[in-house]
Amino acid sequence: MSEITIALSKGRLAEHAVELFEKCGIKCKNILQPTRKLVLFDDDKKYRFIFVKPSDVPTYVEHGVADIGVCGSDTLNEEDKNIYEMLDLKFGACRLCLAGKENGLNKPVSKTLIVATKYINTAKKLFQEREINVELIKLNGSVELGPIVGLSDIILDIVESGKTLKENNLHILEEICPVSARLVVNKVSLKTKAEQIKPFVKLIAENIE
């Protein structure tokens, strides 16, 4: 039996993922314990877990160094890797939105709309489809600052409760699409390790809330 490697990112997605794996009989609570280690194992040593940056999960899975990964659909759309996006795990639910000050979208047509976002590719596609000329500014975190300090007119970002926006006097200007955690699988691993991965996927599918 070959070893199955699962790529996760530290934080709430990992907590939910571990909860789901435990439900499926995979004893892996130990991987959530604080440690500097980047490679951890479940109690039965059947699964190897690696912790990576959220936006890197698709990369590890596409390469095949991770057979399986858990990441948000926002990351998947942004990275667009050649991998199987098999299941909606339903946790980590939020929304991808355009947000900004109340009048953020009311810019005269003669001026270019400036959008700050972590999701450059997603934004490019979105505004291309709408045939709107925008200037995109790549930010890596605290994207809400964009319209507050005048770096951008609006932002394209994921919104959970909306508290951060509210506390900073920003509004959701448009909901683009829902976002949730997904289970991704390397296209070769699914077939070469079918004996383990196929039942794993089925088991996960049965145990999703």
Binding site: S2, E62, H63, G64, V65, N82, N186, K187, V188, S189, K191, T192, K193
Partner: peptide, 9 residues
Amino acid sequence: GISVHFGSP
């Protein structure tokens, strides 16, 4: 044609 030794066909 795929192999466990490589992540692409």
